[in-house]
Design a protein around this nucleic acid. Structure first.
Lengths: 363, 363
DNA sequence: TGGTATAATGTAAACGTTTTCAAATAGAAT
DNA sequence: ATTCTATTTGAAAACGTTTACATTATACCA
């Protein structure tokens, strides 16, 4: 007992305690006087400046260790005009959407590996909230933004870029400005999905779209149209409907579709919430999937295989999208004048049972 | 055209431009010289100090508006020793778990309404990652932490409290330290679930538990046991099994259970991933739920009603847990010496079809 | 009018860094 | 010894706030 106490009361340790600030935290000053040098020298050691003498470097490093020093990121951020990569602001439209959760994971993993922290703002498609978050993140001096803008001409996001912030958009771009964008190949994904339905014999395929004002929605509709055109199938505008991108909308529109005199044999839903609405409505009516009506959804989710029947879905690679996005952001921070890149991430069609099987056909 | 240009070239506006810093951002200094006062006065106006004369206040407010001033939160944080509520650190074990997404939403909504920002660290049950995040958040000088500690005696979290940080734990507490905790009533939830199964006639009920080292798991097991005891049902240890809290574990253990000579008539799974594993395994074997075997899961999720059959589940109120947690955190920031609170949030049993119906019985 | 109390504002230090510039030290060459 | 150069270090300013303290302006009273 006495011995261990002694160990803690050696003069060195006492000096250390006295040197720490009110918050009981070691600062440059603590380390400096512990090592008998100036704070400038300590700073140089920390930043790997080769100019310091080996002898001093060693002394400083020892002092850093014994004092348990960690740099104060707030002070660093306040001081330096040059952008580092310490704090990334992330603006997400809907954290409940598993697609965005994947995106977040991708970003977060990369950030973690590089010692960055991520501030997340979930603005729930609410413009006012989006703006508040942008203001907050600005005043937190984040080093860069990753944003899924609420719409194509989001002035607040544009102003960020004009003010010289590093910005990468995900899921949707900006109409007026040339900016780094990472998103899924929505048109191709939708095309492949509808093509699959056509190939296994469907001729009357409904499409429940998301919020028509969102670019993503338009691209998926375009893919739907293109597949029809390519296979010489007419499009019946009556069975291409969409209002909001949520569960309720999925339920309502599916109900409308099922009551149509000439009911479609398949439904292609534009996102996972719509899919859920459709699934539930159909099963509630005691109709069988895929025998009575097939369902194919945009967005694969981890519980898609547990649905009964397992869902055939267009898989977006959210994780990879997130990774690409933060990579681009890092690059932009380093090279602010690099030409903006446009990364399109492929999608995969995950064929399961909700669409039935391929009918015999000659390719 | 000419007119609008003129408007932008009035001397006032030119002065403003000249006053803004290199980053083209207004600071206290900008506002101060625009209003012809010192920065101290501007600061006072901003913080609602009643000492300033109405006349000056008006002038300053006008200058604030025209300059588009926003306070720099980094500088604020660096300067003030007193904790505010501007930046909250949130440490989450698994952002893919919809339960935690609800918790995050609860926290985030409250934070938004109060002008706080939230830094999220997702440490994926990885101790090393948890520690790094704690270090980062410390050095970002967050005003408080909300943490789901990786285990009951998490020294790193404990050290936070010892260093005077405001900390609230969610989902699990800390063994050694008295700290604010918000969590579900796990034992009661499990009890109600098993009671329900017993009441509708099940006599042989398996329990797939989560990672046995997590307190939550123990509490749910306790509820399982208590229900058996109360209804005079013996517990067969062989059908109470658990390894990790993930999907694979759910699949494996379900498989084991199904191959038992004396197969249980119902499975109670301890979280949503295990449930998913069980569901998928059972359906894959072409067994019918609930006729062949009933399933009841801890954790209700938004897609539970879309499963076939819809899942009977113990609903945790993640959103409310988040809200309570940040409320407690705010309180602790204001009153660091308040006695720690222990909030237990009730659960609800959502009865759907995966357990079959109540057998006629004389209560 | 001068004095004093009160109200209003300004000055300057501090928070913990980074970085420029100047100073000190050392070594080499004369 | 003196000067010069190269190496190594330190002093001080700056980032944008808050705040204790000092100063000035205003009002009141004798």
């Amino acid at each position: 007992m006495t011995i261990s106490c002694k160990r803690f009361h050696n003069p060195f340790h006492e000096k250390l305690i006295a040197l720490k600030s009110a918050k009981n935290v070691a600062s440059l000053k603590t380390v400096a006087s512990l090592a008998g040098v100036s704070i400038a020298t300590v700073s140089r050691v920390l930043n790997g400046d080769p100019v310091v003498k080996d002898e001093t470097r060693l002394a400083v490093q020892k002092a850093i260790k014994t004092s348990g020093y960690h740099p104060n990121r707030v002070a660093q951020r306040l001081r330096s005009t040059v952008r580092s990569k310490k704090l990334i602001g992330l603006l997400i439209p809907d954290i409940q959407n598993p697609f965005y959760v994947d995106v977040i994971r991708g970003i977060e993993e990369y950030a973690y590996e590089n010692g960055s922290a991520v501030v997340i703002g979930n603005f729930s498609q609410d413009q006012k909230k989006e703006r508040l978050y942008i203001d907050i993140l600005r005043s937190e001096s984040v080093d860069g933004f990753i944003v899924a803008p609420s719409h194509g001409k989001d002035q607040y996001v544009e102003s960020l870029i004009e003010d010289g912030y590093a910005v990468v958009c995900i899921d949707r771009g900006l109409t007026n400005l040339n900016v780094d964008v990472v998103k899924s190949d929505n048109e191709k994904g939708a095309f492949n999905a509808v093509e699959h339905l056509i190939k296994i014999g469907h001729r009357r395929i409904a499409h429940i779209t998301g919020d028509p004002s969102i670019p993503t929605t338009q691209e998926r509709i375009a893919g739907y149209m293109a597949a029809h055109q390519q296979y010489g199938l007419p499009v019946d505008e009556e069975i291409v409907r969409g209002r909001a991108s949520n569960f309720v909308s999925g339920v309502e529109i599916t109900r409308e579709l099922l009551e149509l005199p000439n009911r479609p044999t398949a439904i292609f839903t534009a996102n996972n919430l719509l899919t859920l609405g459709a699934f539930e409505t159909i099963l509630h009516r005691e109709l069988k999937i895929p025998e009575d009506i097939a369902v194919l959804g945009f967005d694969d989710v981890y519980w898609a295989t547990s649905l009964n029947p397992p869902l055939t879905a267009v898989r977006q690679h959210g994780f990879e999208i997130g990774q690409r996005a933060i990579e681009l952001l890092y690059q932009r921070i380093e090279h602010p004048d690099r030409l903006p890149a446009n990364v399109i991430v492929k999608t995969d069609l995950m064929i399961r049972k909700s669409c039935g099987f391929k009918l015999p056909s000659k390719t």
